[in-house]
Amino acid sequence: MNWAEFFTMGGYGKFIWSAYGAAAFIIILNVVLPMRRHKKVLHMLRELLKMKERE
């Protein structure tokens, strides 16, 4: 089996790769977005604590 054949997937290439691509996109989004939100919340809490200390 060569790579061209692999990507063609017996004529079903566009279906298979779009399905796998969509799934990968959603899965990666489910890692990136929670990580970003966690950082943002940590940052906000730190700012909040600084404000409290100043009071």
Partner: peptide, 29 residues
Amino acid sequence: FFATTVLMRMRTEVLIRERHKSWIADIVG
């Protein structure tokens, strides 16, 4: 994958919901 991301999201929830507790200040600081 579910276990990984659910723990990640739960930690963020803990920070938000428990933000007035003193131990959160320790973690954040």
